[in-house]
Design a binder for these strands. Structure first.
Length: 415
RNA sequence: CGGGGAGUAGCGCAGUCUGGUAGCGCACCGCGUUUGGGACGCGGGGGUCGCAGGUUCAAAUCCUGUCUCCCCGACCA
């Protein structure tokens, strides 16, 4: 893509109130644009990162046997009334009415809908286990959106669901997801820890969260320094760190009082739902002895935009974003300084070689182009100028070292 | 929902206290000079000052109402 043709405009200044690094840098770099509080467009540069994250998540879940589908965003209230969540969830559940004054719900999550869809499919123990999921918009009337993409009212989630015959089988499905989630977070370039969490409005037998440790994270995490068990502070009913210490709060696993407190961003959440949905929605299967049982379910979710922003929180410097290669919008940022025709030729060669290249073909100063290359955080920068004498200067984002290479070497090196 | 802050050009802001008909930086357009870390000169275009009422000869400025956005907290599948 040529800069001059791209739907992009970077800015020297961040939106005045943006305080988190990801919010500032994603806005400055032209990755996102706010429509209103908690509603963001992903501009082309941001959407490319989103698509890479999308592909990684899909790939890792397919690997454990999750099959892809897609469910609606607008739900007739019927299914939400079956589980009573229509009445119990609270104002976060966004309710709407149609022209006939009938109740509908905007998808906050999809347990009811998937359970409904499973009814004609699952009726025997022979139909189990099953793993299925989708990547779809979620809408939540959050009391307060914050931190750019970190908490929005509309976002995309990969949510998957497991159907098993008993708790032992659920445990196996659950373990598969833990593995897949760890792979996903590693591949997008962040470090996470899995912690014990509250089941909240999801209900069920238990839940875990995947947390990226971050100073400005919204969630409080308690880590036991003896056994390294980690728990969301909500689970222990901890409001203030000082109170917890004074009261002698113990690790729920080893009872040690040697606790440490961290903050984190929740990038994934998994739930053992049990029969919370299968019983009220009547999802039953028949076993070998012709006896009926409720299906044991699990649900698993990753917010794509939040994950994208979390990567920025974890990987940036004063000049801009440093995208991990796995999810960078482009592989190389190409710019010419005074040899435009040579840069044009390099662009064509790289494109032909199948390299994802963002070509800064603007009539701008070297400084401006370098600054944008840093801000956008594309892993490699390739400079063509009189100084490079027919070769290309290659630099990795975040490093100071430069190398002179030929075009074919370049294509090979950055693959 | 409680507390705090803010709405003036695409973005960042000044002007509001003390009313006199809107300005700066970035961005944008034209010409020229520049070109290895966000260049420079000259010349331009763009704003019913969030919205609605009111006071006044006169309102960005004063009064009333209302909408929106941000931050902290509560909340958070």
């Amino acid at each position: 893509m040529r800069y001059s043709k791209s739907f992009i405009k970077t800015s020297h200044q961040a939106p005045k109130d943006a305080e988190t690094a990801s919010h500032r840098l994603l806005a400055r770099g032209g990755f996102i644009y706010p429509l209103g509080a908690g509603f963001y467009s992903l501009l082309p540069m941001g959407f490319r990162v989103y698509q890479k994250i999308y592909d990684i998540i899909t790939e890792e879940l397919n690997r454990i046997g999750v099959e892809d589908m897609i469910m609606p965003v607008v739900h007739p209230a019927r299914v939400w009334k079956e589980t009573k969540r229509f009445f119990e969830v609270g104002p976060e559940l966004w309710k709407i009415k149609n022209r006939f004054k009938e109740d509908f719900v905007l998808a906050m999550t999809h347990e009811e809908v998937i359970t409904d869809a499973a009814k004609p499919i699952i009726s025997s123990y022979k139909d189990l286990p099953k793993l299925v999921g989708h990547i779809q918009t979620k809408v939540r009337d959050e009391a307060r959106a914050r931190g750019g993409l970190l908490r929005t009212k509309e976002f995309t989630m990969q949510d998957a669901y497991s159907f098993d015959r008993d708790e032992e089988a659920l445990d196996k499905s659950y373990q598969k997801f833990i593995k897949a989630y760890n792979n996903i977070f590693e591949r997008v370039g962040i470090e996470t820890i899995m912690i014990e969490s509250d089941v909240g409005a999801m209900g069920g037998l238990g839940a875990n969260e995947f947390m990226m440790i971050a100073k400005n994270g919204e969630d409080k995490i308690v880590v036991c320094k003896k056994c390294w068990h980690a728990v969301n502070a909500d689970v222990l009913g901890i409001s203030r760190e000082s109170n917890a210490i004074r009261k002698g709060t113990k690790c729920p696993k080893c009872r040690s009082t040697n606790l440490t407190f961290k903050r984190g961003i929740e990038v994934g959440n998994i739930f053992k739902l049990g029969t919370k949905y299968s019983i009220p929605q009547k999802l039953f299967y028949t076993d070998e002895r012709n006896k009926e049982h409720p299906v044991i379910m699990g649900s698993y979710g990753i917010g794509l935009e939040r994950l994208l922003a979390s990567v920025v929180e974890a990987s940036h410097d004063k000049d801009g974003i440093i995208w991990p290669t796995s999810i960078a919008p482009y592989r190389v940022y190409l710019l010419g300084i005074d040899k435009k025709s040579a840069a044009d030729k390099t662009y064509q060669q790289l494109t032909k070689a199948g390299v994802e290249v963002f070509y800064d073909d603007r009539d701008a100063t070297a400084g401006e182009k370098f600054a944008d290359a840093d801000l956008l955080g594309i892993p490699y920068r390739a400079t063509v100028s009189a100084k490079t004498k027919g070769k290309i200067e290659l630099k990795k984002r975040g490093s100071k070292q430069v190398k002179l290479v030929t075009t074919s070497e370049l294509a090979r090196r950055i693959k």
